[in-house]
């Protein structure tokens, strides 16, 4: 009996040590990124030897970074709008007619782009956009990012709609509301939190996406991740850490908003 207890204690200790190590593994790189630009020396080291805010001030004087930031926001907002419209409409359509054959292919179809390596998607889309002559505009980036953001919006909305009380819709149409009217006045107010979270996730996906953007952006449309990549390939630049910190903060705020609107466990499930 004592030996069993002894073994179980050891197992518990090993189990805890295991997940604590992984917890550190998952968060340490992010902490490194946030902490390094405070180093006054400008040498990339962790932990930093001394601290300064100079690199943070530098960001706001650098035209290239500010332009890239603007590009990221434009592409992110465009992606959020397009992906939300496509995802919400499709998820709603599928709720209306659950058993349809065309509806049943939508789920797998929107997921496939997520399972294709982004480099292959980037190559394919670059060839396609060159072919049809819309290379080098924000449109190409928005369309590419929408390919990845739409499945998230779609599955968030499917799970939101599945909790919606559909009798309200019948009541609306019994009272004489048209399809568009009842969607805007009855359905949307009930699912607005889901729409918000979906749009927010789409925006974050676009903000963070890098490989497709590398292929599709040009000098005038390059986004933050693309510029960061070019910079770190040349030298370890503390400015990259500064920008990364901003992006991480951005995502944290967005995540906090999403959690306030729903809850963390639900958001985590939507991401998988």
């Amino acid at each position: 009996m004592t030996s069993t207890l002894h073994r179980e204690t050891l197992e518990t200790i090993a189990f805890r040590a295991g997940y604590l190590a992984l917890f550190a593994f998952l968060l340490l790189p992010l902490i490194v990124v946030v902490a390094t630009p405070f180093a006054a020396s400008g040498r990339l080291a962790f932990p930093p030897e001394s601290y300064s805010l100079a690199w943070y001030a530098e960001f706001f004087n650098d035209v290239r970074w500010l332009t890239a930031f603007e590009n990221s926001i434009i592409v992110g907002v465009g992606t959020a709008i397009l992906a939300t419209v496509l995802g919400v409409l499709a998820a709603f359509g599928q709720e209306l007619d659950e058993g349809s054959r065309i509806g049943s292919i939508v789920g797998p179809l929107v997921l496939i782009p997520l399972l294709i390596p982004p480099v292959i998607l980037g190559i394919t889309l670059l060839m396609y956009f060159s072919e049809i002559g819309i290379r080098g505009s924000y449109v190409t980036l928005v369309l590419a990012h929408t390919l990845w953001a739409t499945p998230l919006v779609y599955f968030v909305m499917r799970s939101v709609f599945s909790r919606f009380d559909w009798q309200q819709l019948d009541a609306a149409s019994d009272l004489g509301a048209g399809p568009v009217q009842s969607f805007v006045h009855v359905v949307l107010p009930n699912v607005k939190h889901g729409v918000f979270v979906g749009g927010l996730l789409a925006f974050i996906i676009s903000l963070q996406e890098f490989v497709m953007a590398l292929f599709l952006s040009t000098a005038s449309t390059e986004t933050i991740p693309v510029l960061a990549w070019t910079e770190i390939r040349q030298a370890l630049d503390p400015m990259v850490s500064v920008v990364s910190t901003f992006l991480i903060l951005f995502s944290l705020v967005a995540l906090a908003l999403a959690v306030v609107a729903t809850n963390l466990e639900w958001v985590s499930k939507q991401l998988s």
Binding site: F23, L27, V32, V33, Q208, I232, V240, I248, L255
Partner: peptide, 26 residues
């Protein structure tokens, strides 16, 4: 549980470039 979930979600919300770059000084 919340902390463990956060440790999974945070890297997901961080761009690939930064996630990779962070390993250089480490």
């Amino acid at each position: 549980k919340s902390l463990l979930l956060l440790s999974v979600v945070m890297p997901l919300l961080t761009t690939l470039v930064i996630r990779t770059y962070a390993f250089t000084p480490l």
